[in-house]
Design a binder for these strands. Structure first.
Length: 257
DNA sequence: CTCACCTTTCCTGTTT
DNA sequence: AAAACAGGAAAGGTGA
């Protein structure tokens, strides 16, 4: 298959009736769900993704919204097996979107099509897709054949109005390891030292955010070097692709989260 | 429209 | 040899 064009936004509500219009869409944040609402949500997920209800031990979800939201992807896998990541990602969308829905994948005639990082993907460009998302995605597309599947974009692509600055973009990738596997990694978490693992991929993602398809690490790194003077970054010598947050960078420390 | 700010682009040269 | 690093110079984009 080929990469499909995204449908117009106003198709979403017709395509995903219950999901966007029911009670858990906007006014009810999952964090405040009762156990009953968690149960309702679970039933809807089963219906929406055509999950075999018998495969989910429902007693593992005898929790309220606050507890549910504190579960990691691994917790969901322990609780629900192979469909755990689907539930996890779907819940995350509700946690993060505040009613502003991202599009979900569109399937026509049997294949799986996903939307990742605002790009429509299918089996052909699944490799690129995997480099952007957590390893869960691969297993989802192989094991599951949902009619509708939502993959949350990494935090750095969320359309919130937060910082559009490069160092914030980098920081936000580092702060969301489960959503951004293998792009960047901390070398020294407490000192704020980090390293680019996939420098060109990060540059492309940065370009994507800035609507600039010709961004490269060469150019991104020039912008990074300007940060030394402003003490947003501190110089780390002798180590390629390694940078360190400086005193004018905020929000990266564990204690600040 | 102007200005400041933050890059982006391009470049030459150096280092690893 | 290829990829990173260093910065100067100048242009671009955006929001106030």
């Amino acid at each position: 298959g080929t990469c499909l064009s995204p449908p117009a936004l106003d198709h979403v509500s017709t395509v995903m009736p219950g999901y966007t219009s029911r009670m858990w869409s906007q006014d009810y944040k999952p964090q405040y769900w009762s156990k009953y609402l968690v149960w309702q949500w679970l039933k809807q997920m089963v219906d929406m993704y055509q999950i075999d209800a018998a495969s989910i031990p429902f007693q593992n979800f005898d929790v309220d919204g606050r507890q549910l939201c504190s579960m990691t992807c691994q917790d969901f896998t322990r609780a629900a097996g192979t469909v755990g990541p689907i539930l996890y990602h779907s819940l995350n969308e509700l946690k993060w979107s505040g009613g502003n829905k991202h599009l979900s994948g569109n399937e026509k005639g049997g294949g799986v099509c996903l939307m990742i990082n605002e790009t429509w993907c299918d089996d052909n460009n699944i490799q690129e897709l995997k480099s952007f998302c957590s390893p869960d995605i691969e297993f989802l597309t192989i094991k599951c054949r949902p009619r509708w599947f939502y993959c949350p974009p990494p935090m750095c692509f969320s359309s919130d109005t937060r910082g559009t600055h490069l160092w914030e973009f980098i920081r936000d990738i580092l702060l969301n390891p489960e959503r951004n596997s293998g792009l960047l990694k901390w070398e020294d978490r407490t000192d704020g030292v980090f390293r680019f693992l996939k420098s060109e991929t990060v540059a492309q993602l940065w370009g994507k955010k800035k609507n600039n398809s010709s961004m490269t690490y060469e150019k991104l790194s020039r912008a990074m070097r300007y940060y030394y003077k402003r003490e947003i970054l501190e110089h780390v010598d002798g180590r390629r692709l390694v940078y360190k947050f400086g005193k004018n960078a905020q929000g990266w420390r564990e204690s600040e989260k």
